[in-house]
Amino acid sequence: MIALYVVAAIAVFAAIRAIIEKNTGRKLPYANVLNFAVAGALVLLLDHPLSLVAAAAYFVGSTLESNAIASTYAGGVKR
């Protein structure tokens, strides 16, 4: 259970850091920590093989989101 509390605390911390940070580029690493924490929390909440899939899906999805935001923020690929 301690693991879950640690993860949740880190999630709250990361969320607050991500929100108060002004610069978009530096927001994303904080959001990334949040993603890690939530993905971990999903598995810890429900001990079932499928929750691994859920965590992975969430993690991949949110990583993709961060990736897309960062890339668009960078101006995309110059072709």
Binding site: L64, N67, T72, G76
Partner: peptide
């Protein structure tokens, strides 16, 4: 459309 890398792979 949007030209970022993930649009090719995702």
């Amino acid at each position: 459309s949007l030209q970022i890398e993930v649009m090719e792979s995702a």
